[in-house]
Design a protein around this nucleic acid. Structure first.
Length: 356
DNA sequence: AATGCGTGGAA
DNA sequence: TTTCCAAGCAT
């Protein structure tokens, strides 16, 4: 690492000071952020919460969830005291649900074993559930002013272009990380980290980067060579198979739906869902969760996950008050508490049962 | 080290 | 419609 200072120029390598000067003028205003130059730093709880939500997730998607969480649970102690089901329901729709399970685990460790104080070093933060190298560095830098390297997808893209790294991902990550680390300044590490990420989000974007207004345009090797659109070189991608299954949407006379909480491990772990068959490459075997006249809706719920497409056939039934299902539990339902796939099933089922 | 794990918006 | 991808982590 080195100190920032002078201006960037050709042949001199990128200057952290130029990036900080750009950030002072162009920092995005975000709900979890304290503007550069403010007299105080952001609260560790809010920095941590935002960083967990932002993992592989866009800023527009995170904003309403961050607002909802901080309003409902203003402190780590409040979050730690929440019920599992209410936190999972509040996270529903944001995706990567292991984050929510680890969020609660982490909150309970911090509140229960650390007096509500987050560790103030990257090394300490790294021990907590759901906090990996990136998040540990980000919280240490932003909340505690520690000069830690903070390497996310934005930073990797910026490094790939600054140094015109032509090795494909993910092999190139080691060099990207080394370049990012040697560039990280001792001064204002939190602003610097947020600055590089803002640069990646607004100027050095994946497609059509705005090189003409970039504070690092002069030292950028890819810009000089015209290769910026081809950096970073992506990893080879695999085809997504299509899997099939059956979902059973049962509604009792009182309006309660037959739902089950999915096991913690695996896809949509810990979330509410409809009982059903396994999801497999072959046509699914029927697996009704209760004895009833299950009726085909003729509509499939289609959904794409990270690594496969899914088509779920939706079956519906009206169940009597005395029904004793083999699987699941009757409960009142707010569809917003369901992950997106299960919301799609609900919409199909509700429409089918409406036309009786 | 490679794989599993969500979602919605943009092109 | 399909593809791509966005502030990664756990195993």
């Amino acid at each position: 690492m080195r100190d920032g200072g002078g201006a960037s120029g050709p042949g001199e390598g990128p200057d952290p000071g130029a990036l900080l000067a750009w950030y002072d003028r162009h920092a995005r205003a975000l709900p979890w952020r304290v503007p550069p130059g403010a007299a105080h730093r952001a609260e560790p709880y809010r920095v941590w919460l935002s960083e967990i939500m932002l993992q592989q997730t866009t800023v527009p998607a995170v904003k309403p969830y961050f607002e909802a969480f901080t309003t409902r649970w203003p402190t780590v102690e409040a979050l730690a005291a929440a019920q599992d089901a209410e936190v999972m329901a509040a996270w529903a729709g944001l995706g990567y649900y292991a984050r929510a399970r680890n969020l609660l685990k982490c909150a309970r460790v911090v509140a229960g074993e650390r007096g509500g104080r987050f560790p103030d070093s990257a090394e300490g933060l790294r021990e907590l559930p759901g906090i990996g190298p990136y998040t540990a560095g980000a919280v240490a830098a932003i909340a505690f002013d520690r000069p830690e390297p903070v390497v996310d997808g934005n930073v990797e893209r910026v490094m790939a272009r600054l140094y015109d790294i032509d090795e494909p991902l993910p092999g190139a990550k080691a060099e990207m990380k080394a370049r990012a680390a040697e560039l990280t300044p001792r001064a204002r590490p939190g602003d610097y980290a947020q600055g590089v990420m803002d640069l990646g989000a607004t100027i050095c974007t994946p497609r059509s980067p705005a090189c003409g207004i970039c504070p690092w345009r002069e030292p950028c090797l890819a810009r000089a060579r015209g290769t910026q659109a081809e950096r970073p070189v992506p990893a080879p991608k695999k085809a997504k198979p299509t899997r099939h299954g059956i979902a059973y949407a049962g509604r009792r006379e009182d309006g309660a739906w037959l739902l089950e909480t999915r096991p913690d491990k695996g896809l949509l772990g810990g979330m509410l869902g409809w009982p059903g068959s396994d999801w497999a490459d072959a046509p699914p075997e029927p697996a009704p969760p209760a004895e009833a006249e299950w009726r085909e809706t003729g509509v499939e719920a289609r959904h794409t996950f990270t690594h496969f497409h899914l088509r779920l056939e939706v079956l519906v039934a009206e169940l009597p008050m005395g029904a004793e299902p083999a699987r699941g539990r009757f409960q009142p339902l707010n569809p917003k508490d369901l992950p997106t796939l299960m919301r799609k099933v609900h919409a199909i089922a509700a429409a089918a049962l409406r036309h009786d």
